[in-house]
Nucleic acid binder design. Sequence first.
DNA 1: GTCCACTGCG
DNA 2: CGCAGTGGAC
Lengths: 259, 259
Amino acid sequence: MTFRVGTFNVNSLRSRLPVLERWLPTAGVDVLCVQETKVTDDQFPVAEVEAMGYHAVFAGQKSYNGVAVLSRRAPDESVSGFNDSQEPNADSRLLAVRFGDLWIFNSYVPQGKAIDHPDYQYKKEFLSRLSGLVAARLPGNVLWVGDLNVAPTPLDVTNPTNKKDHVCFIQELRDLYALKTSALVDLLRRFHDGEELYSFFDYRVKNALERNIGWRIDHMLASPALAGLCRNCWIDKEPRGWEKPSDHTPMLADFDLEL
Amino acid sequence: MTFRVGTFNVNSLRSRLPVLERWLPTAGVDVLCVQETKVTDDQFPVAEVEAMGYHAVFAGQKSYNGVAVLSRRAPDESVSGFNDSQEPNADSRLLAVRFGDLWIFNSYVPQGKAIDHPDYQYKKEFLSRLSGLVAARLPGNVLWVGDLNVAPTPLDVTNPTNKKDHVCFIQELRDLYALKTSALVDLLRRFHDGEELYSFFDYRVKNALERNIGWRIDHMLASPALAGLCRNCWIDKEPRGWEKPSDHTPMLADFDLEL
DNA sequence: GTCCACTGCG
DNA sequence: CGCAGTGGAC
């Protein structure tokens, strides 16, 4: 038995229900971490998710952000936000769930807007603070997934030379990201070294999917022992080509785990 | 062989494509007169209409109004607007098409807003001017259809006593309508005398369809000889109950005609 | 290009 | 309630 985990920035859960209803029942996913649900908790489509056979844990807000974890069985424990008495608590950008002895951190890291914008400073603080939370669970089994809004290397974005000042690629951010994730394994790269694989294709780039013009900013990062149990990790580009797609597409990983 | 004509105020053709794609292929319609397409001619969904097996003639504008005629075969002739050198030409409210010796006038009569609003005067002028155009084709076969924005009698609206000052029911307008349509036969009433049948159900009235709270403001009016060839006329309430419906629902008529 | 929110309309 | 437009975000 393998345990399959996925991450998918849906860019509005309610707008993406048709895509999810087409994809999820065939994807064989045990736990799906969803970002940018853009829905308040009282409006979360619980019935629709249950109709697909999934339990939902969610932490949302109006218009922006919002995270959820859809899972075949309910998590044993879940924590929304940083929950460390510091402000802001980032409730709608972070949701940690536990299945047995595995902690999964589902995160939507701020994009940052521009390198001279306050949001970029917040992005760096968010990454540091979140990495601390993850590190606190080591050496246990930890999986940190989500839209991290960082392309870690030049291989992770099309035309990197144009992107030197981009808030998802600037050297300072990549250095910070490398430092803060150094204890973890980038699962996609464990199985697909050197390949131009992307999880985000801008709506505004004509035929971005077919031309493979995109960004690898969604990630699945595992603690070393857990990474050793990982049997495969891949990006499923299919849903990006369907009607009314998200601009992101799902990433998945299989683990030799009984939970 | 019968020749089936329909009229349907779609309240945005692009928004209503899913409804139309569900309804039209099973409706057996030869000619469908559509109102409130709300689409400019360059944005008209020609391919989608052709995929349903219909030819399209259209006269639209941005945001408001817009008429189209969808037909299994292209009309022999079509005229957009009043085309009588008077202003305004009402391009996007009127489209006349000819099939053989039958002229069909597809019209979207102004609603009028309020009895003290200039639009109400325009509505009366529009009705008069249009009836002149129709009369000019008599004694030939003429069919005047569309959203005429007139409930001709108290039977044609729910709670008529509350509607005495309504721009679609005020006595002055009903008198004008009766006068201007006196040479024509109201096909629905030819087959359904005395019945509370409506073609428009306000979105804002909760469960309007189930409670049958509505207006009969869409009409099919035929010249006497043509009315004699009419075998049936009915309102199809089904599409009003589907997902994302128009606030109007189609009306249909069958004729013993070979065109 | 596709989301969101908001306003104006019937 | 569900169209349309506008302006902001990414």
